[in-house]
């Protein structure tokens, strides 16, 4: 399959992730949206890697997966702390940034 198709698919994936992050109230689902975005990026990496015949793309995808794992760990830990503090994971109520 031509690389363009993979790229388009990766963008679609990224967009769905973005939409999830933007419109969902549940912080968990928002985190899942972020995972989707990362996977969109990964897909693009791999597609280009094949196009160019260069394995560096694979290495970066590998790093991104590791990063995603770290991000999920810390992000979920923050959610747990948030839940402990205010008994909710509703992002609309987590507006401490404006203080």
């Amino acid at each position: 399959m031509p690389t363009t198709y993979y790229i388009v698919l990766s963008f679609v994936l990224f967009l769905i992730g973005t939409a999830g992050v933007l419109v969902r109230r549940n912080a968990l689902i928002a985190l899942m949206g972020i995972e989707l975005q990362l996977n969109g990026g990964n897909l693009a990496m791999l597609a280009f890697s094949r196009e160019l015949g260069d394995l560096k793309g694979h290495v970066f995808a590998f790093f991104i997966i590791a990063l995603a794992a770290a991000e999920a760990a810390v992000g979920l830990a923050i959610l747990v702390a948030l839940f402990r503090g205010r008994q909710t994971v509703n992002l609309d109520e987590a507006t401490l940034l404006k203080r």
Binding site: T18, L22, V23, A30, L91, A94, T95, R99
Partner: peptide, 14 residues
């Protein structure tokens, strides 16, 4: 824009 709402910040960024 300055609501402390991360999602809104992200929307503005986009």
């Amino acid at each position: 824009v300055q609501g402390g709402d991360v999602q809104r910040y992200m929307a503005v960024f986009a």
